[in-house]
Amino acid sequence: MNEAPLIGEPLALDLVNTRPTGTDLLDTPEHLANWLALQAARLPELAVAHPTAADLAAVHAVRDHTGSVLDALLHDRRPPADTLRALNTAQAAAPAIRQLAWDGNAVTATTRRNGTSAEKLAAVLAEAAIDLFTDPSIGKLRRCAAEDCVLLFLPAHPRRRWCSPDRCGNRVRVARYYQRHKAD
């Protein structure tokens, strides 16, 4: 990968942010495997040892639909109905089913999904998008203030302007410093 994907935003934003300007950080099944490994602590059910081209296509479809809805929300527009339908269909293809079991000491619940790995990946990611779209904090959604950045984030602090202080924030601060001292 040319650059490391940012992680730490809600899963659906992390997914959309794998497509910064002119780059696709999930352009191969291997890159998808790397991204899924980065997300493993949050959602271990996403771990796919060797993603296939079908897995990659399913993830791209959910990413495109999620990005379309987020773009509409950023511009105070109604999301396209076909995009919402596509996310609902992806989520329904491998719905989450909680199964109860006794572990010897207590009742446990394990979430399982039936379907191909592509259907399971798409369902988990579509479900994450649905959770994001319906979260009250979605009204705080922002695009990075750096001119050449398209990444999205949900600010924990109202003054946050950049996708990452280390990535874009530092570049902007260095450019401002250079401009101020260039005149000297």
Rank of each mutant, 00 (worst) to 15 (best):
P51Q: 03
L11R: 02
L73Q: 12
L100M: 12
N34F: 07
L125K: 03
R85G: 05
T52L: 08
F133N: 00
G67S: 06
P79S: 06
D103R: 01
A126C: 02
A94V: 14
T28H: 02
S117C: 00
A126P: 00
D24E: 15
F153D: 04
I138T: 04
L56M: 03
A106V: 05
G104M: 02
D55E: 03
A33M: 01
E119D: 12
A54S: 12
T111A: 11
D24M: 02
C144Q: 02
R171E: 04
D27Y: 09
L6R: 03
H181Y: 09
V16H: 07
Q91C: 09
H181G: 08
Q99W: 13
L87I: 08
A81R: 12
L121S: 01
H65E: 15
L84M: 14
L56S: 01
V150P: 03
R63H: 08
D14I: 08
R98N: 14
D148N: 09
L125T: 03
V62S: 01
R173G: 06
V150N: 14
D76M: 10
T23A: 11
D166V: 14
T52P: 09
R42V: 12
W162E: 03
L87H: 00
R160H: 14
L151P: 01
I130Y: 11
L84K: 01
L152W: 10
A41C: 04
T83D: 14
G104H: 03
A156I: 06
T111K: 01
R167S: 13
L36Q: 08
D64K: 04
H157Y: 14
L36R: 05
